[in-house]
Amino acid sequence: MYLPDFDYYAPDSLAETCEALERFGAKAKVLSGGTDIIIKMKSGLLSPEVLISLKKLEDLKKIDYVSKKGVVIGALSTHNDLVNSKILNDRYLSVSEAAHNMASNQIRNIGTVGGNLCNAVPSADLPPILIALGATIKLVGTKGERVMLLEDLFTGPMKTVIAENEILTEIVIPDQSSTGSNYIKFGLRRSGALAVVGIAVAVTVNGGTITEAKIAIGAAAPTPIRAREAEKFLQGKTISDDLLAEAGVIASGESKPISDIRGSAEYRRDLIRVLTRRALYKAINEGHV
């Protein structure tokens, strides 16, 4: 296989990166880890004239906790940076675990969080759990920066609101009122598999009552979705097996999965029913794991 020809730039700063993106416009693509774009280029699905490499943007490779803000994940953190981050392991093991179940060790050492989000693949593993935890993202462009909820990033398969001259620089998981979170990936093998469905939940439990629940589902629609009806249904209810099962049924009803080689829409809907219940159970009983 081979990559079609392109020009390559590796700007020294964020500002230069945005300028370069503005200059080349639609001709250019951002090269972060490259694990998605290189496959697309080798497969003939993409042939950008210019690749703008982010490799020199060292500031975007950190994972920090900033008080009153939350956990700040630089967009260039690799999946394994998430897996191995003490901060995430301590606070949101669910995020580390989601990263750990992606692709393979080799790919997790290359692929980045930013890339995973910006590619907007409906089956991506990180968006559901980050959405469930209410993560925000920062987009920086030549005209300044904007912060938005991650769940507002996606507009369709491989489509986002990111402008041609913008890049995603950081993801923030805000301090939580939630008491537990969990991501369940259902893949067809235990490594190197895309999610047939991926279910993330974050719940706030007070006594035996769910005061708030967030459910985000991957591979269930053209973009990661929130199961808002199920969330509403759970709010203020006393926890019981039937309650969680019913939430699963509602979430399943809200999903709009497609049929493809990994599974039929019917199968996916039923998996969503089952796994939503299981994810809720786990988040309620085990905390942020």
Binding site: M1, L3, Y8, A10, L31, G34, T35, I38, I39, K42, S43, L51, S53, K55, N80, A103, S104, N105, Q106, I107, N109, I110, G192
Partner: peptide, 27 residues
């Protein structure tokens, strides 16, 4: 496989295993 699926091209880059078929030389 040249698509990062098989690991035959695994090398250590800065002491971490990576698929060398997925990395531009210039990177």
């Amino acid at each position: 496989c040249e698509l990062g699926d098989c690991g035959s091209c695994t090398i250590l880059l800065e002491n971490k295993p990576v698929d060398s078929c997925m990395i531009l030389a210039i990177e």
